[in-house]
């Protein structure tokens, strides 16, 4: 079970009403390497992974939901008062036709989220290597969004999220080290 704290992991500040930026950010909301994919990938893989690293997948998967919530807040703030005209000008006219200003799990091109974005191979090394790759891809996506964005307050939050991707990748790498460690080897203290 989970315990919910009614606060964000890192404060989200947005300086301008900028639906175009929301269109790019939605990649991290419902995209292949986004936070929803990450959370569901880790929380699902943890059932069939050696028990030494289950806790890691639980922790990181849970944190990904906290990131998802930050991204959602950013997108919501960027679009909540946008008029249909502004949505159209931002390339979100087709989104508006379906969803009004609601958020939806889709990528920046409007393709709905699909479970084929995530994998569960049942092989611990294959799964952890997929997780490492996913973290590095999410890190790169944050870089490209920072490059596209001209909102310094928003970029501050994105920088925090990118740093977390680096830490998660590090922890998955350590999980591989734990699993590949020779069993039955003599330990000297």
């Amino acid at each position: 079970m989970w315990i919910y704290e009614k606060k964000l992991q890192y404060p989200v500040r947005v300086s301008t009403c900028n639906p175009t930026l929301a269109k790019y950010l939605v990649e991290q909301y419902g995209g292949a390497d986004g936070e929803l994919s990450a959370a569901l990938r880790y929380l699902n893989q943890r059932y069939s992974i050696p028990d030494k690293v289950i806790g890691l997948l639980t922790d990181i998967g849970t944190e990904e939901f906290a990131h998802l919530e930050m991204i959602a807040t950013m997108i919501y703030k960027l679009t909540k008062d946008a008029t249909p005209e502004m949505m159209k000008a931002a390339g979100l006219g087709d989104h508006y036709a379906i969803h009004d200003n609601a958020l939806y799990y889709e990528n920046s091109s409007g393709v709905p989220w699909t479970a084929s974005y995530i994998q569960a191979k049942g092989d611990p090394i294959a799964d952890l290597y997929e997780d490492i790759a996913a973290e590095e891809k999410a890190r790169a996506t944050y870089q490209w969004i920072i490059n596209l964005s001209d909102d310094p307050d928003l970029n501050d939050g994105l920088r925090f999220l990118r740093e977390r991707e680096i830490i998660h990748s590090q922890r998955f790498l350590e999980a591989v080290e734990i699993l590949k460690d020779e069993q039955g080897k003599k330990k000297f203290f």
Binding site: Y10, Q143, N147, P152, N155, R159, R162, E163, I166, Q170
Partner: peptide
Amino acid sequence: ALRAGTLWKAFYDPYYNPFEKAK
């Protein structure tokens, strides 16, 4: 650490837009 996103100095690697060096 709460601002940086990590407790460990060795893992801190902030990213800034390279197209906006002035900022």
